[in-house]
Amino acid sequence: MGSFKGHVLPGSLFLVVGVWHVWSSVFRYVSEPPGAFRVRAWSPVGRGKARHLELYVVAGGAFLDMCVELLYSTHLRWFVGPERILNPAHMNDFEHGGMLLMFFVYGALALVSEKTRYLRLPEGALCLIGAAAFSSEYLLFYFHSTTHKGLEGYYHLLLVLLIALCIASAIAGALFPTSFAADLTNAISITLQGLWFYQTAFTLYGPMMPEGCRLDGNDIACHSHDNQVRGELLANVQLFSLILLVLFFVLGSYAVAASRYGHPDLSRSHAGEEHTAGSGGWNFGTHLRTGTTLEEVAAY
């Protein structure tokens, strides 16, 4: 069982990073010459001291959250009983701490790679390390020691699907380092994951609880099966609305970036593609009018 703060805090981290990734991906695509785009596992903030701000946010945020899970939530009671076994009452906190450790490792390795000469990792390797961090998150929510049932389980199932999209897009970025689609999809999936953490917090632990359902101790209880089904259908509508919201944000970001920072060759490239697509028949007719032989026509 989670809490409002337990969903809002990681949601804020994912949302901030995801929104920045969307803007950075679009900005780099429209501002660079056609064909020069490269997938980035992380997005620099300018060229000055704030360049590695995203990595500090990821590593620092993951480390602080990990300390909360392992130190504050457990009250340092990691082992219990005469046999000194791992405290089963805080297994949920240990699992969250392990997941956060992976994101901290990703941020720390990226910083070491960027700021030192001892561990220079290619961008594809950083993408795969990011995919490994998302994989740990996927395994956490899929094989959680806290059994999610009913409406709560449905919200976490949708979260698992969004995490799977993060994994797939990160791997695609490593395999296709020049793909704008892979880079943008990864940014969108991270943004959606952050928004869904917020949606889960406000629905299950806030004022948006579906009618006929309530928070009963550590469980979400619905009065009837019909109430639970209506709650699940509402979750589908909420996810669709968030996808639509992110789509509008991506389109707006692209329009602003293209109008203010668009590379001159980008518009020429688009104009050339439209001219080529629309003038194929004309080129063929030109060849016919200039006395092209039948063999040349067949080859053309």
Results as ranks from 00 to 15, higher is better:
Phe4Glu: 05
Val8Ala: 04
Ser12Glu: 10
Phe14His: 11
Leu15Val: 01
Leu15Asp: 10
Val16Cys: 00
Val26Asn: 00
Tyr29Lys: 10
Val30Gln: 08
Glu32Met: 08
Glu32Ile: 00
Pro34Ala: 15
Arg38Val: 04
Trp42Lys: 08
Val45Ser: 03
Cys67Asn: 07
Ser73Ala: 14
His75Gln: 06
Arg77Phe: 07
Phe79His: 02
Phe79Arg: 11
Val80Lys: 11
Gly81Ala: 09
Ile85His: 12
Glu95Gln: 14
His96Lys: 13
His96Met: 09
His96Glu: 08
Phe103Cys: 06
Ala108His: 00
Ala110His: 07
Lys115His: 13
Leu119Phe: 13
Ala125Pro: 06
Ala125Met: 12
Leu126Gly: 01
Leu128Cys: 08
Ile129Thr: 04
Tyr142Leu: 14
His144Val: 10
His144Ile: 03
His148Gln: 11
Lys149Gly: 10
His156Cys: 01
Val160Cys: 10
Val160Asp: 09
Leu161Thr: 08
Ala164Tyr: 01
Ala174Val: 07
Ala181His: 09
Asp183Lys: 06
Gln193Lys: 06
Leu195His: 08
Trp196Asp: 06
Thr200Gln: 05
Thr200Phe: 09
Phe202Thr: 09
Pro207His: 12
Glu211Cys: 04
Asn218Tyr: 02
Asp219Gln: 13
Ser224Pro: 02
Asp226Phe: 01
Gln228Arg: 14
Glu232Ile: 06
Ser241Tyr: 00
Val250Glu: 00
Tyr254Met: 13
Ala255Val: 13
Val256Thr: 13
Ala257Lys: 04
Arg260Gln: 12
Tyr261Leu: 01
Gly262Ser: 09
Asp265Val: 03
His270Val: 11
Gly272Gln: 08
Gly272Lys: 08
Glu274Phe: 02
Glu274Ile: 15
Ala277Thr: 12
Ala277Asp: 12
Gly278Ile: 07
Ser279His: 07
Trp282Asp: 15
Gly285Val: 14
Leu288Trp: 06
Leu288Pro: 07
Gly291Pro: 11
Glu295His: 15
Val297His: 01
